[in-house]
Every structure is written in C-alpha cells, then in structure tokens.
Design a protein around this nucleic acid. Structure first.
Length: 561
RNA sequence: GCGCCCGUAGCUCAACAGGAUAGAGCAUCGGCCUUCUAAGCCGAGGGUUGCAGGUUCGAGCCCUGCCGGGCGCGCCA
C-alpha cells in the first residue's frame, strides 16, 4: 500500500511545484512509514517536514497545502495533519479488503517478488573444516545463511548455496595424524599424542570405523577403511570422507541443502591458485622479501602487506581464497554473499585486495559479507561448554536432538547476525508460552482448528463470498490485522535486501500476537453468516501469511499441536 | 596499541532509510477455561537507550571523545 500512497504524494508534489509553492528542482525521497500508534492512522509521511526549508514555509502549513493538492483516492478514507507536520493516512475499507484479497489470491506466492529478476547470486555459508562435527556456531551460520537464501529466492534471485571445504591445509594432516594415533591405541593423554592433534571422542569413533574397514561416502567421494594403521594417506582420505558425511547428515537433519560443495584442493589440482598468483605478479602487485612472496595489500586499504607464498613454498590460506572468489566471479555471480563467523573478518580486506589486484573488473566492495558473532549456550542458568562427542564445544547435532529442528533454526535465525547470541536450551525446548516458535506455530494451528470445527458443524467457507463478507468486519482489531498482512511483502523485501532474516521472525511474532488477542476476544464461528464468513476469511489470510513466513525460516507450520 | 562488532527494562532481544509517548518475551505480582486448542488472553510494576559533547525541526540510530564486553591483529586455517 505504501507505493500507492507515495504516488498520491508525488502527484501532490508536482502540483505544488507547478504552482510555484515548491522549487521545481526539489526531488525528495518520498518516505511513507508505518505508524506505530493507531491514533496516527495507518501510514504516515514526513514529507512536509523534509520540504519545509526549501519551501520557506512552516511544516504544518506546507502539510496542509500537500493535503489540499492530494488527488482523490478510494484507497484513503481520511487524511490528517498531526504533530510537527506529519501527514497521516487512514486506509479505506476498500483498500484493507484488497490487502486480504491479495493474500488469498496469491496464496503461497504472497510476499514473493521478482526484484532479483533471475540474476545469479551465490551464498557461501557454513564452510566448516572437515576436521570435526559441526558446532553451534556453524549452526548459526547454517540457519542465517539458509534463511538468506530462502529470502533471495522469494525475491526472484537465482540462488546457489555453496559450501567450501578447506581440505588442503595443515589441519587435514593433523586430523590424519590424530586418527592414526587412535588407530594405534594412543589417547590424547599419551606423551606421544600428536602436537595440535584433535582430541575429541569422534576421532576414536573414526579410527574404529577405519579399522573395521567401513565404507563411507560423501557427495562426491567414497572410501573404504584399509584397516592399516600405517596407511596415513588412506586414513587421510577416509577421515575427510567420514567427517564430510557426518556434517552432511547434520545439515540434512537441520533442513539445509547445498547445491555445490567446493573443495579447496581442487583449486590446486586445477591450477587456479597458481594462475591467480601469476596474474597478481604480472600486474605488479607482488614482491619478494626474505624468501617469501608478498602481496601489496596496502595498495588496497590493508594496514600491512601480506605473505602469499611462504619460505617453505606453501601458500598462505587467503591465496586459494582469492582464487576461489575469482572462480565465483567467472561463474557469473553478480552478487556473492559470504556468511561466516566474525572471527574471520580479517580475511575480508585481503580477499578483496587480491581480487582488485587481479584487475578483471570485479567491483570494489565485492563480495558481500555477513558476519555472525559467537553463540553461547545456557542450560539451567549456566553456560554449557562441553560436548562429550566433540570434547570442547556444543555440537549442532546435540542441539537438534535435544531441542528439535524448528526451535533450533528459529532461535539461531531470529537474532541479528552481528551481536553475540545466547542460546537458552531450557527456553528453546520448553513447550509452553515461553517459547516463541510454538507461539507462532500455535497461531497457525489454531486457524486450522477453526476450519476443522467449521467442517464438523457441517458448514463451509468459500473465497469469493468470504471476501465480500469482509465488509462485516468493523472492529479496529480486525482492520489492524488486515493492515498488518499488507506489510508482509515489504518485510520480505527488507529482509532479503539487507540479509536480515530476523525481520521475518519479528514480524511473525507480532502477527501471531495480534491474532491470539483477536482470537481470544472474538469468536469466529458465530451464527451470523456474513460476520462468520468475514472472520474466516481474515483468519485464513493470517494462516497463509504465517505459513509463508515460517517457510522462509525453514520452520514447519503444523495443522495441529 | 590498532581494526571490526556490540552496549536499550532484572534477563534475552526489537525498533522498518533520522520521526510522534523507545516496544515484545521471560522473570515478578493480580485476574480469565460450562464458549472455535489455556502451547492462549487481559492487567500492573519495571528505562536518563553505557557516559560526555556535536549535527537538526527531530537522535537508540549520524559525527567526535571516553568507559565496558566480544572477536581479530601469524610465513596458522
């Protein structure tokens, strides 16, 4: 409804310019806001206050001129000037009814748009090293990243979900050595346990599986344990495949699917790392010093230059990352979003610097980053740090098992990514009013229940007569609910454009709250036919929006609870 | 020391491009089930938005300086 109101204002502006009340060259951004207080109408604009200075008039006087110049519209019931110069719009019954109609005609498409116009966007998220189980931090990345993808899809983008495996670094050697040590019966407490070895119980499970001769397969590889504790290469491949498989199972249980699993090792075998280094050198952005090859990242805003190739000949970690992002660019992604933990934020400057140094037309701020802060887990009022399985952190699987997929996803995605997150296990698993997930789901189930009762009573509801019957809804609470439904598409748009899924969960929480209040105050299945049909229509529209929003969060919308 | 993020009710968090009287939930206290699911509703108390300046018609939001917390600052990934 905002664009329609903005259009009316735009027409009024033109008229005032024509009448020389306003200078012809002012081009204000016409801002239409939702009102917080219903005594301020349904929508409001600050336009008169913005233009008071160029017009040389006081805001309220200008507001009156704008209102007088406003074209007549059946969408608006009433316009008022209030406060320092706000113009408040009260929507007509015709326009609120049209909002409900829009929901029920579009159904599961309501709120979706085609802003992305089919452009390609790639979202890289989770990207955990294949050296252990996924922990709750990865869970936050998975939830936020997947919700961002759903939002981008809902706004017309062609989305690729991608997981980058760092399977080429030193940590893989440490993993292999740790498993080998377990195969040989060592424990982390032994003196000969590898330095920097992985100590968690899962290493023991892994070693036992290898020595049993199990076969493990992941997306694109399959290995059988050779049962030979001296076969370090075999152990390495087996361990990576095993842990990738574990992670895949966790992600599947979390409802997250990736389109592409990209292996860091492939960048080496395909020569892409070497090619990127050569290009940077050819472009004159590198120099040798102390036996190492450096990238002059200070040319691109870094505070000091960075080593690319170490004296031992190996590349530092960000070099394959640059090659990887060049590859993304070459695959045609105009927009790339990397969702990762904030502890990696220092890589951003380096990767972008490397990409600029390649000089292949990549825009300066590319790619985008969404960084999430740490998660702490609370149980019984105390911080939980230890998982038996992983040894040092709470695993995603522990959480899904204990709390459930819906609540885990909701809690991890319902907060702004920047800013630390406290995950309260007791709250998340409580099946009571404490729990916002159930609160929203319950609203959905309640509407379903109303329709079941309707059928039990041998009555029916039908869309067209239902929409006509909306005129029987005269309560303020009902009008407010309709207006709120009308805000949903804008919420989706904002959430998608800003990579902020939590806007959706906030909105759903509010909508569910308004619904519960209305439900408790007013009976839906009343005898009077028009009133009943009108309320059923509104209830169904609410149900539809709740279902659509929950889907964007990857949370189920149960029919009954 | 430098860089990034955060600081809002006792706790966990909101506040849509700078808009009107800063909102929810939990916790606390008091009410509501012969009525469509009480996983719900209604009401009460609770705040100098870390501090101090600045920008402007208007600041939780923007700027500067402090204070406090997190993360990072490697020829580790």
């Amino acid at each position: 409804m905002k664009p329609q109101i903005a259009e009316l204002l735009s027409a009024a502006l033109d008229q005032l310019k024509h009448a020389a009340v306003l200078p012809a060259d002012v081009q204000p951004r016409i801002q239409v806001d939702n009102t917080r207080d219903k005594t301020h109408g349904d929508l409001a604009t600050n336009l008169a206050m913005m233009l008071a200075k160029p017009a040389g008039k006081n805001p309220r006087e200008l507001a009156q001129l704008l209102v007088d110049a406003l074209p007549r519209s059946s969408l608006v019931q009433k316009v008022e000037i209030a406060g320092p110069g706000f113009i408040n719009f009260y929507l007509s019954e015709e326009s609120t009814s049209s909002l409900v109609r829009a929901v029920l005609e579009a159904k599961d498409q309501y709120g979706r748009s085609n802003e992305g116009a089919g452009r390609k966007v790639q979202v890289e998220f989770v990207s955990a090293n294949p050296t252990g189980p996924l922990h709750i931090g990865h869970g936050r990345g998975a939830a936020v990243g997947d919700c961002m993808c759903r939002l981008l899809e809902a706004t017309g983008w062609d989305v690729t979900r991608e997981f980058y495996y760092n399977d080429a670094g030193q940590q893989i050697n440490n993993l292999a050595l740790s498993v080998q040590a377990r195969c040989k019966g060592l424990t982390p407490d032994d003196a000969s346990w590898p330095e920097d070895g992985y100590r968690g119980d899962y290493i023991k499970d892994l070693a036992e599986s290898f020595m049993r001769g199990d076969t493990v397969s992941s997306e694109d590889q399959s290995f059988t344990g050779t049962q030979d504790a001296d076969d370090l290469e075999g152990i390495r491949h087996f361990a990576v495949a095993y842990l990738r498989n574990e992670q895949d199972l966790d992600l599947k249980a979390f409802g997250v699917d990736f389109d592409v699993y990209f292996l860091e090792s492939s960048l080496y075998t395909d020569g892409k790392v070497e090619a990127a280094v050569e290009k940077l050198t050819a472009n004159g952005h590198t120099y040798e010093d102390g036996g190492a090859l450096w990238l002059r990242t200070t040319d691109f805003g870094d505070d000091k230059d960075r080593v690319m190739r170490k004296t031992d000949g190996g590349y530092t970690y960000f070099v394959p990352d640059v090659a990887y992002h060049l590859d993304k660019w070459q695959r045609g992604f105009v927009r790339v979003i990397n969702e990762q933990g904030a502890d990696h934020h220092s890589t951003i400057t380096r990767v972008r610097a490397g990409l600029q140094g390649l000089d292949v037309g990549i825009p300066q701020g590319w790619p985008d980053y969404v960084l999430h802060q740490m998660v702490t887990v609370m149980r019984g009022g105390e911080e939980v740090k230890i998982s038996k399985r992983a040894g040092s952190y709470v695993t995603l699987r522990d959480l899904i098992d204990e709390v459930g997929r819906d609540a885990t996803r909701y809690f991890l995605a319902a907060r702004k990514a920047d800013g630390q997150l406290t995950f309260d296990i007791d709250l998340a698993r409580s099946q009571s009013s404490d729990n916002p997930v159930y609160y929203i789901q319950y609203a959905h189930a309640r509407v379903c229940s109303i329709f079941r009762k309707l059928a039990e009573a041998g009555q029916t509801w039908e869309l067209e007569t239902g929409l006509d019957a909306l005129s029987a809804l005269t309560l303020d609470s009902e009008k407010e609910l309709m207006v709120k439904l009308g805000r949903y598409p804008e919420v989706v748009r904002n959430a998608a454009n800003n990579n902020e899924p939590h806007l959706v969960s906030n909105f759903l929480r509010e909508l569910a709250g308004d619904f519960h209040t209305w439900y408790n105050a007013e009976k839906t299945l009343v005898d009077e036919t028009d009133l009943r049909n009108g309320r059923l229509t509104l209830a169904e529209a609410i149900r539809q929006v709740l279902a659509n929003g929950l889907d964007l969060l990857g949370v189920s919308a149960p029919q009954e609870m």
